[in-house]
């Protein structure tokens, strides 16, 4: 968590530094221009783009899922190295096999901004099917059983979550001795009690999806956390998306 925040701060200052550089370059150009015409009003200048990107978690085992969440302003062309052109704000799950810098570039009329999120990948995991259940530690569990994410005020299983559920169920069906606790989480907006009920619906929807994929309901327990235990504490959509999830953990 701390690493995550420190990373974010560094990226923020990097963005700021880029912005300052662009500004001072623009000022330099102006000095060279003929003196008489007064500088145009600032409001006419296109605002410089801003860009932020986060990766969560920032450390995974090989093949583990990482949610990239980014946001830009005043950008017309946004791309992430290795992914290509992306919407101006959004989230995407990636499965890096080696440590990767996800470098976001936002170009706009007012210049260019960039931001980077680094994901550190630990040594390759053993093939899941070879593991005996006693070898399934929390980190092995999390790299094989991934969380699923929900739309705003919804507990419907999205299509991207369906494939995650299939993989999760696949691993869990290979390890019938494992029990799972499903935590239902919501973003920080809205009311405490309603969010706890909604979190319960999310956890239950995830449970039903696993049951449909062949798991015995006896192995699955749900707990709603509503907005009581926020995973990400920034006040923006990328963070809210990370918080709107069902989290699977080993029930010991």
């Amino acid at each position: 968590m701390q690493i995550y925040f420190r990373g974010l701060l560094q990226r923020r200052s990097l963005t700021l530094a880029t912005g300052v550089t662009i500004l001072s370059l623009a000022a330099g150009c102006h000095k060279k221009a003929a003196p008489p015409p007064p500088p145009p009003p600032i409001s006419n200048a296109a605002p410089a783009p801003t860009a932020t990107i986060t990766a969560s978690p920032s450390v995974v085992n090989a093949g583990g899922g990482v949610v990239l969440a980014w946001r830009t302003t005043d950008a017309t062309d946004v791309s992430i190295d290795g992914i290509g052109t992306v919407p101006s704000a959004g989230t995407r799950t990636v499965n890096p096999t080696e440590s990767t810098n996800y470098h976001l570039v936002a170009k706009g009329d007012g210049g260019t901004a960039d931001a980077t999120a680094r994901v550190t990948v630990n040594a390759a995991a053993q093939p899941a099917s070879n593991l005996s259940e006693s070898d399934v530690t929390d980190s092995v569990f999390h790299q094989n059983v991934k969380d699923i994410f929900y739309d705003y005020d919804s507990y419907d299983i999205r299509s991207d979550a369906q494939s995650t559920i299939s993989q999760d169920a696949n691993f869990l069906n290979q390890h019938p001795g494992l029990k799972v606790v499903i935590g239902g989480y919501c973003d920080e907006r809205g009311s405490t009690e309603y969010n706890l009920a909604l979190g319960e619906n999310r956890a239950n929807a995830a449970k039903q999806a696993l049951v449909s994929a062949g798991l015995s309901p006896d192995r699955l327990r749900t707990v709603s956390y509503g907005k009581e235990k926020q995973f990400c504490t920034e006040h923006d959509e990328s963070c809210w998306q990370l918080n709107r999830r069902a989290q699977f953990s080993l029930d010991k």
Binding site: D153, G190, Y194, A197
Partner: peptide, 26 residues
């Protein structure tokens, strides 16, 4: 869908107001 936060009509105790997400937003 979510049904939560009930409260009784204190005058009669024969009615309950509550919050429901049956039609989307609460």
């Amino acid at each position: 869908g979510p049904d939560v936060s009930p409260v009784w009509n204190p005058k009669t105790n024969s009615q309950i107001a509550w919050v429901s997400g049956r039609s989307g937003l609460p």
